[in-house]
Design a protein around this nucleic acid. Sequence first.
DNA 1: TCTGGGGTCCTAGGACCC
DNA 2: TCTGGGGTCCTAGGACCC
Length: 444
Amino acid sequence: MIKKFPIALVDCNNFYASCERVFNPKLWGRPIIVLSNNDGMIIARSNEAKALGIPMGDPLFKVKDIVKKHNVAVLSSNYTLYGDMSQRVMSALEHFCPDVEIYSIDEAFLNMEQYKGRNITDYCRYIRTKIRQWTGIPVSVGIAETKTLAKLANRIAKKNPELDGVLNIIESPKIDLYLKKTPVEDIWGVGRQYTKFLNKHNIFNALEFRDVNDKWIRKNMTVMGQRTLFEIRGIPCVSIEYSAPPKKAIVSSRSFGKVTSNLQDLKEAVSYFTHVASRKLRKQNSECHLLSVFLRTNPFKNEPQYHNGCMVQMPTPTSITSEMLKYAHQALEQIFKEDFLYHKVGIMLTGIVPKNKSQLSLFDEEDRMKLDDLTATVDEINLKYGRGTLFYASSGIKRSWKTKAELKSPRFTTNWEELPLVKAGETDYEVELKAIKTNFYYES
DNA sequence: TCTGGGGTCCTAGGACCC
DNA sequence: TCTGGGGTCCTAGGACCC
């Protein structure tokens, strides 16, 4: 049984769009959309863009007319910027409440137990104001006694401006109304498939869901569905995790800017992804003994399709890039077939174990200690002088597979060359964009 | 012309063991 | 000719999340 206490979910409003606005005030009031990697589909929208009916997840070309007509600002995603802004928001939150679970790049759960008996709603309003003041990012807060209900409250807070960004539903007399106003598809843990299923059985909102038989939910939606149901009833089933557990799987993959059927191109890409993935593995102090490589053609094209993967078991758990490269290339060669236009390759590391507990092989022919040292040195240099200072020759230098990002804003906060400049002596402060390109809005 | 990337957990079914 | 019962481990696939 999990203890009951007030939980506040702080969620950044339209996070990526808001990050862009912090450093480019001209974007205020203007509809903004942010694109996924490779400038593929829409993954974030400002309120103005939502109001225009631009859907999440659509590819850019589908909304081109709306974009033109309403002068929508279109941006490639700038994860360096968003990651840095996220850290600022999170450390500000920790300042106000030390017990924080950083749930995603733009969300955090706060354990408000120590503020019990005080006015939590007012305190959250204060936090919200401060976050805005310190980071420039607008947030909403939902307060309840389970994570699922806090999510639900947050959504209502966001949708109703008169609530001023904060809604506390603990012991609220209006709880049934709030549940009724929440369609099942907006419940945390209910996705597309379960929505279809529930709707088929005449369950359309969270209130109807709450009163359904839990054995029946268990049977049809597994224990996960049952957990969600209990949480909606106010019984906490999902606890707050204050530190991130080590990852059980690490993936690195990317769609190409241009398709290729060339094995050498694929090898270079796989090398690069191995480098990235193994770096993540070392960062969490783990090793792994399973390495998979996968590749695929573009499923949206009307062309011969091929999709395959290959998993190799490495004799000894390792996190040494050079060693993993060997297996990665072997795996790639096993599944590579000529005459297909490849659109994506990637690598996945599984069978992850903590480094110190790894089983050593008696017949290990590699000089592991030495390679460990070498790898650590490479990591250190890259940390100090920037990612990509040292890399493996097998990842190539031409990067013909490189992903597309033509509309990216500068790294305002993490690169000296790209800092925004503020012109002195002007009332309306004007930011001069020392941008790499000047065409980073989509205006044509 | 143009459609992301990185995770989690659960379950069923097969392989294997005694 | 007749052929049990119980357990573990692994994997693939499906659901979900941001």
